[in-house]
Design a protein around this nucleic acid. Structure first.
Lengths: 134, 134
DNA sequence: CAGGATCCCATATGATACTG
DNA sequence: CAGTATCATATGGGATCCTG
């Protein structure tokens, strides 16, 4: 059998795995980072902060984060309604964990770039510009 | 302008953001975790380790990780060829960063579950089973 | 301003078959 | 075993229009 307990954490049924499945997505992580950086942001501010995100994905991402207790949503009944988003303590703790990833990214982006340059794909078909032709 | 320097890290052009865009994906994180847990694994072992991953995605994920210098791929010319994958130092350091996320997931999965139960979506349309009808 | 509802498409990913 | 190639499909995600 392949019941190696070391991999239980990777079983789709494992709760930890489920959590990973949920938060390991670009927009979620970026939203959390944005909120961590400024504490509180309105919908449109948040949208401007996260370059490339669409209104749809932002709404969707925020709803999920709110549902899972990471984000607090406060509606203020002003004339054009004002909605402010901020991290809950739970969300803040997630932000810290994500911080490790960001730091790593920052510290190692050069190494990645370098590796990428050196890389030669395994058994690639002849490069079009290099084939001597038959 | 919205040139708040606090959000530079979220600009799509920012190198850190680019790295995040790349590694913040489920299969990549899971592959790294799997390799960290056992040091070295063959293709098929890796596939069995990561529940739910398809052969295609595993190949693709490993290629990318290899290209970016996180994974080392060693081919042994045995009869049915043997390929072993392991983390490079760079990959290992990433694994550590990801570890923070895993620990967070493990520590807070209950809180998430709880929040999810309490959650009531904002201004939802009347629940079918609750509408008094006109 | 915030966000719900739609339409629609690119592509991410799975399933299958084939090979060195 | 460790892939590559192909086909089929789900769905992630953008563009638009609309409303309180």
């Amino acid at each position: 059998m392949d019941t190696d307990p070391r991999f239980d954490m990777l079983k789709a049924a494992c709760p930890t795995r489920q959590v990973i499945d949920r938060i390991a997505d670009k927009w979620t992580l970026l939203a959390v980072v944005a909120l961590e950086a400024s504490g509180t942001l309105r919908f449109s501010e948040l949208k401007r902060s996260i370059e490339g995100i669409s209104q749809k994905m932002l709404t969707q991402t925020l709803r999920t984060l709110e549902r899972d207790g990471m984000v607090r949503r406060e509606v203020e009944a002003t004339v054009p309604v004002t909605v402010r988003y901020s991290l809950t303590p739970l969300g803040l703790s997630l932000a810290h964990a994500v911080g490790a990833l960001r730091e790593w990214s920052y510290a190692n982006m050069d190494a990645i770039e370098a590796a990428r340059d050196d890389y030669v794909p395994p058994t690639g078909p002849p490069t079009p510009t290099a084939v001597p032709a038959a």
